[in-house]
């Protein structure tokens, strides 16, 4: 999936202050490329990631994905688009607590009205959790939860993975192993991935690193 970000600006109001969080940002991501957005807290990396997922509208500028302007779509078109094209991996895993590992993984396919059962099992097998199909998130360790989250993000074969500090909540050892898995899977499937992190080691594994400093790409 080819992504073009052109002169995007975004600001938030926080009380009386206006915080200019993204300043005239431009960025290109090639199909199948893995890009790491590296920056400190508050540098605007998560905001940029949200915009790529069609979750946040820029104040000005354009985001074009595969030649179409993302923000010309209606809300429901955006929803469908997300369901078909985007997989998200969060720092906090964000599994749905009342659903089992398998049900969590099935969800994206169910949303697309596709057969989920065998696909979900296959993906959990891929992330090494074949034995944990019927476990609820609370029964899983942090690393296991993140693996479920990766399976859930990949199950619908999206063309873009958005990962927000995917290792941020894991200890170094586990983090490394889970990230190996993520990168392997993304590369195998030739999926485009935009990865937000402040971990330079992780960032180095990407095809390209984009530094975000005070709302600007460097």
């Amino acid at each position: 999936m080819k992504i073009t970000v052109e002169n995007v600006n975004k600001s938030f109001e926080q009380g009386k202050n206006k915080i200019h969080i993204l300043k005239d940002i431009s960025l290109n991501v090639a199909d199948g490329e893995i890009v790491a957005l590296l920056g400190k807290s508050g540098s605007g990396k998560t905001t940029l990631l949200s915009m790529l997922g069609g979750l946040e509208k820029p104040d000005s500028g354009n985001i074009t994905i595969d030649q179409t302007n993302l923000y010309n779509k209606t809300e429901s078109e955006l929803c469908d688009w997300r369901a078909q094209n985007i997989g998200i991996v969060f720092q906090q895993f964000h599994l749905i607590a009342h659903l089992t590992a398998k049900e969590n993984v099935s969800l994206p396919l169910e949303i697309l009205n596709r057969d989920a059962e065998s696909e979900a099992e296959m993906w959990l097998d891929k992330v090494g959790l074949k034995e944990r199909l019927t476990h609820y998130p609370t029964m899983l360790s942090g690393g296991e939860q993140q693996r479920v989250a990766i399976a859930r993000a990949m199950v619908s074969k999206p063309r873009l993975i958005l990962a927000d500090e995917p290792s941020g909540n894991l200890d170094v050892e586990t983090g490394k192993r889970v990230m190996d898995l993520l990168f392997d899977i993304v590369k195998q499937n030739k999926t485009t991935m935009v990865l937000v992190t402040h971990d330079e080691e992780l960032a180095k594994r990407a095809d390209r690193i984009v530094h975000l400093v005070a709302g600007k790409c460097q």
Binding site: C79, D80, Q84, H94, I111
Partner: peptide, 11 residues
């Protein structure tokens, strides 16, 4: 989460 995963508002 449902929203992020692209479930329509109606659903």
């Amino acid at each position: 989460l449902f929203f992020l995963m692209g479930m329509t508002a109606e659903k």
